[in-house]
């Protein structure tokens, strides 16, 4: 099938995510309207209008009922996925960089930027009976991050922990009940972590870092298992749900884009073998760095969102499934 090009955004894409079944694809960008698409035919279902700043992150819950977004307008918003209306809008003291629902969808976590004299903080809220009063309620947990800013975040197994990636390359696990750091990776990455994505079973996750590598970590001990090296900053990485494959997306910094040709820019999605750490395929498409990647939950297609403002949904052709790694 030919790739679909989704042109719903006016500025660069910041994050894309599939829902659990993979029938919906959510995209957020530096313009103010996150979009939702039917992944099968690329039809746009709607836009979530209400933010007044760049939307940095989004997440959809297990049942695809609620969407959480965090934006540069210093709010995090909960949305009704079906109608595109705001359920709750929570004001923060600086812009919201990451936001995620827990696996069960009972809780949500979001983190704020270290900016305007504010420290980076991680908040956890209860979203079971979320309504407009949520903005007045105190978060169930609040963890100040003194050392460095959170740049990516994932919930650990059983909604008990939160894994955070920081702008100094650190990764840490926080116990949600104690509000304490339980595991620290030390210095595995030399530069900030742009993205973290869990494997399908949640036992491992892959990080994408500015230090030109992506790494595979054990989700419990934070032991670095594998390293995938490239020669450009990696903005996003995802693990295939059906094969031992990892896809990496990146490119040079956005500010250098205009001075480099597409050929030299290395804007391809790069496919690595999960275990052998060897690159086996590349796929072109974007004419800017890729900012976010996501595998369809069935593993037969994947989507990428780029600095060029497009989301591309690419189905794998038969050669991908026949290609057996020797």
């Amino acid at each position: 099938m030919r790739p679909l090009m989704l042109q719903g955004h006016e500025r660069s894409i910041t994050q894309i995510k599939y829902n659990r079944e993979g029938d919906l694809l959510f995209s957020s960008s530096k313009d103010q309207k996150p979009n939702v698409w039917y992944s099968l035919n690329g039809e746009r279902l709607g836009t979530y209008d209400g933010h007044q700043g760049a939307v940095w992150c989004l997440d959809v819950d297990w049942e695809s009922r609620k969407l959480i977004t965090g934006a540069g307008d210093m709010t995090t918003k909960l949305w009704d996925v079906e109608y595109g209306t705001v359920i709750a809008s929570i004001a923060t003291k600086s812009s919201v960089r990451t936001s995620n629902f827990s696996f069960s969808g009972n809780q949500a976590a979001y983190s704020t930027d270290k900016a305007m004299g504010q420290n980076c903080e991680l908040f956890i809220i209860d979203v079971r009976n979320a309504d407009s009063t949520l903005s007045e309620q105190e978060p169930t947990l609040r963890i100040p991050m003194v050392e460095s800013k959170i740049t990516s975040m994932q919930w650990g197994p059983l909604d008990e922990t939160i894994i955070t990636g920081h702008d100094n390359g650190n990764i840490a696990i926080w116990d949600v009940r104690k509000g304490q750091k339980v595991v620290d990776s030390g210095v595995d990455h030399a530069a900030g972590i742009n993205d973290m994505q869990l494997s399908k079973d949640g036992t491992m996750f892959v990080t994408a870092s500015k230090d030109n590598t992506a790494k595979l970590f054990d989700a419990e001990s934070l032991m670095c298992l594998k390293t995938y090296k490239t020669e450009r900053p990696v903005n996003s990485a995802a693990i295939s749900p059906i094969f031992d494959h990892v896809v990496l997306g990146g490119g040079q910094d956005a500010m250098e884009v205009t001075t480099t040709s597409t050929k030299a820019g290395k804007f391809d999605s790069r496919f690595f073998h999960l275990i052998y750490e060897e690159e086996f395929a590349r796929l072109k498409g974007h004419f800017g760095p890729i900012n976010s990647l996501a595998f369809h939950p069935d593993g037969k297609s994947y989507a990428s969102g780029g600095e060029d403002g497009f989301v591309r949904v690419q189905s794998f052709d038969s050669t991908y499934f026949e290609n057996i790694f020797e």
Partner: peptide
């Protein structure tokens, strides 16, 4: 449909959804 897609007809809107040229995977090795 809602938001900016409120007015869209059923099926993909050609303004927001385009079919790109086929790109084949370049296998290394």
């Amino acid at each position: 449909k809602f938001g900016d897609s409120r007015q869209d007809m059923p099926g993909p809107n050609s303004y927001t959804t385009k079919v790109a040229d086929d790109i084949l995977m370049n296998y290394i090795g």
